[in-house]
Design a protein around this nucleic acid. Structure first.
Lengths: 200, 200, 200, 200
DNA sequence: CATGAATGAGTTTTCATTCAT
DNA sequence: AATGAATGAAAACTCATTCAT
C-alpha cells in the first residue's frame, strides 16, 4: 500500500523543492559560478543534503532545466487546441523567451547538455512543438520548410541576442522575436541551402 | 632595416602568438573553464610566461576577442565598396558566423563583456556595420526599422541556435542565417513593438 | 551532561587546537612568511581544513593573537586584587614579556592590526591594565603622567629590544624590563614633552 | 692609475643610488612585500639591472640598512666632542629614533639580520656609542650598569612602541624616548637582575 | 653593462564530493 | 535521513632569480 503515511517523505520533498528554488536563485544571481555551499545555505540545509537529493551538481542543474522544459511542455500542450495556429505558435515562443529571460539560465542549458533525462524531456517538448508547427504550417502561417526541431533550436535566440547587449531594456528580446518570427513566415521566404536537422 | 633590431622580441612575439593560439584551442575544447596552466602547457611555455604577456586571464580572453572583432572589422571594411549592398551585408553575416563557428568562442564574448579595449573594438566594428546596413537599406534590401546595433547583436545568433543542437551538421548555421536574413528583409516585415536599442 | 553530545565536534575542536598550535610553531620558526600549507602539514590536516576553521590566513593570525591577549587579560584580572600594586604591575609586565618571548610572535600583532575582534580583545585588556596602573599610581609606585595605553604600547618593548640582538641569552628581556620599569617610576622622572595618546 | 676617467662607472653609480632611493621609498610604502620589479620601475631601470648591482634582494636590503647605520655612525662621531655628554647621548638617541621614524624601515633590520657587512657596520656604530656612553657615565648622567650594547639594542624601542599604536601622532616616539631615557638615568635606578650582553 | 623575457616554485583560496557520526 | 567536517585537486596569480641577446 503506497497510500500509507510517510511523514519524512514530506520533509524530503520540501527540501527538494527548496533546493531547486534556491539553486535557481543562486544560478540567476551568480551564474555558473554559484557554489553548492551557497545553494545549500540559501535553501536552509547543509551541503551533505544537497548531495543526498542530487548526486552531482550537474544533476541539480539538469533537474532545474527539466523543470523549465516541463513548464514549456505544459504551455505547448495548452496551446494545441487554440483556434488561431499562428497566434498559438507566436504565443509559445513568447512564453518560452519570457521564461528564459525571467530565469536568466541560458547557460544552464550548456551545463546539462548530455544529460539523458534532459534529452527525454526535450524530446517530449519537441513533440508538442511539432504539433504547433504542423497546425501553423497547415494554416499557411509559417513557411513550409521549417520544422519542429528548427523552432526548438531557435527558441532561445531572442534571449541570446539580447544578452549580447551590455545594458538591454528588459523587453528587448521581443524585438528580436519579432524579426525572427518574420523570418519564419512564408512571405518573402527565400529557399534555404541547408536541410533541416534530423535530430535535435 | 628594422628587421635586424632586437632579436629577443621575435621570441616574445612568437610566444605571444603561440599563447593566443593555444588559448583559443583550449577555450574551444574546454569552454571558459580552460585553465591558464593548460594553455601554458599547450603553448609550450611556463605559467608565469602567460602572465607576463597577459596580466590576467581576462586580458588574455580580451586579446582573443579583440583579434576576432578586428578580423571582422577588416572584412566589413573590404565589403564597404561592394556593388550589391544586399550581397555585401549577407556576406558579412556569413563571414561573421563562419568565424564564430570555426572558433567556437561565443562564450568568450560574455567573459570579456566589460573590458574597455573590447568595447572600443566593438564600437569600431559597429561603425562599419552601420555603413553596410545603411547601404543595404538605401538599396531596399533590408527593412527600414533595423539598425547597425541590431545586426551586431544578431550576428552570432545562427551559431547560438546551432549550438543548441546535440550533434549538428557543420554548416547548419547557414540554415538559420537564411531564416534570420529573411526576417531582416522588407518583404513581409511586420511592425516591431520594441524600439531599437540606442547602445550596444 | 552536555559533554556527551556531538562527538564529531570533538574532532573538529581537536583540529582547531592542533591548527592553532601548528600555526604558532610555524610562525615562530619562519615568521609571517609561514605558509598555510606548512601549517596544515604540521597540524596533520589538509590545506582545505585550515580554511574551514579560519576563513583567511589573517583570521588564523587574529585567532592566535586574540588567544594571547585573552591570556594576558586573565592574568591582569587575577592581579587586580593584589595587595602590592607595584608588584602587581611589574608581575603583569613580566608575564606579558615572558609570553611574548616564549611565543616569538610580536610580528603577528602587526599582521592583525585592523582586525575588529583583535581590537575588541585589545580594548578589554587595556581596561584591566588601566586598573593595574591606577592602583599603582595611587600607591605612588609609578609616575603620574603614565597611562594604561602607554603601558599597553610598551608591553612588548623588552622583547623587541632583545630581538635586536643576534644571539641573546634567553632571559635578556628581564634586563630591559628592569630599565623600562625604572623609567616608569616616579623617582627621577623628567617631564614628558609629548602628551599621552588618547587611543591605542 | 685609478684616476683614469671611466664614464660608464658614473652611470652605474647613478643607477646604484637611484636603486637605493627607490628601494627605500618602496619599502617604506609597501613594507617587506615591496617587489624587486616595483623597485626597478621606480628607479627607472629594468629588473635585471637590480641584480647586477645587488646579487640578492637581501643584499639590497642590507645596503639600505648599512647606509642608515653609517649615517648614525657619522652622527655619533660628530657628538663625541660635545661639552655636555648627557645631552650628546640624548641627542644621539633622538636622531636615531627620528631616522627610524622617517624611514619607516624597522622591519628591514630583521630582514638583514646575519648579513656580515651589516654586522661590521653595526660594530663600528657600537664603538662610537660606547664612547658616548662612557662619557655620559663619567659625567654621572647615566646609570653605571648600562653598556654601549644596551644603548644600541634599545635605540629603536621608541619607534617599536609607537608602531604598536593604530594611529599614533607623528612625534609620539619622543614620549617613549623620554620614559626610556629616564630609565637610563642614575636617579631611582634599581639593580638589574640580568647581566649586560657581551655581544650584540 | 643593460635589457627584458622566461623560469618555476610558491602563495592563498575555492569547491565538489565523501564519509563518519 | 541529516549533519558538517575533512578531503584533495585545482585555480589564478606573484616573484626572486637567471640568461640569451
Amino acid at each position: 500500500m503506497t497510500t500509507s503515511v510517510r511523514p519524512p517523505r514530506a520533509d524530503a520533498a520540501r527540501n527538494r523543492e527548496a533546493l531547486l528554488a534556491a539553486a535557481e536563485a543562486e544560478f540567476a544571481e551568480r551564474g555558473i559560478a554559484a557554489s553548492v555551499a551557497d545553494i545549500a545555505r540559501r535553501a536552509g540545509v547543509v551541503k551533505g543534503t544537497v548531495f543526498r537529493h542530487f548526486a552531482t551538481k550537474e544533476d541539480l542543474i539538469a533537474a532545474i532545466v527539466i523543470g523549465h522544459i516541463a513548464t514549456l511542455s505544459d504551455e505547448a500542450r495548452k496551446l494545441l487546441g487554440a483556434s488561431d495556429p499562428e497566434a498559438a505558435l507566436r504565443e509559445f515562443l513568447t512564453v518560452a523567451a519570457d521564461q528564459r529571460h525571467q530565469h536568466n539560465l541560458t547557460f544552464l542549458q550548456t551545463a546539462s547538455a548530455g544529460n539523458t533525462a534532459v534529452l527525454a524531456a526535450r524530446d517530449e517538448l519537441i513533440g508538442y512543438i511539432g504539433q504547433l508547427v504542423d497546425a501553423a504550417r497547415a494554416a499557411g502561417a509559417i513557411r513550409a520548410d521549417v520544422t519542429a526541431i528548427d523552432v526548438f533550436l531557435m527558441m532561445c535566440a531572442p534571449i541570446h541576442i539580447m544578452e549580447n547587449s551590455s545594458d538591454p531594456s528588459p523587453s528587448l528580446w521581443q524585438r528580436y522575436l519579432g524579426i525572427l518570427f518574420d523570418g519564419l513566415r512564408p512571405e518573402g521566404a527565400s529557399p534555404l541551402t541547408q536541410p533541416a536537422p534530423s535530430k535535435p
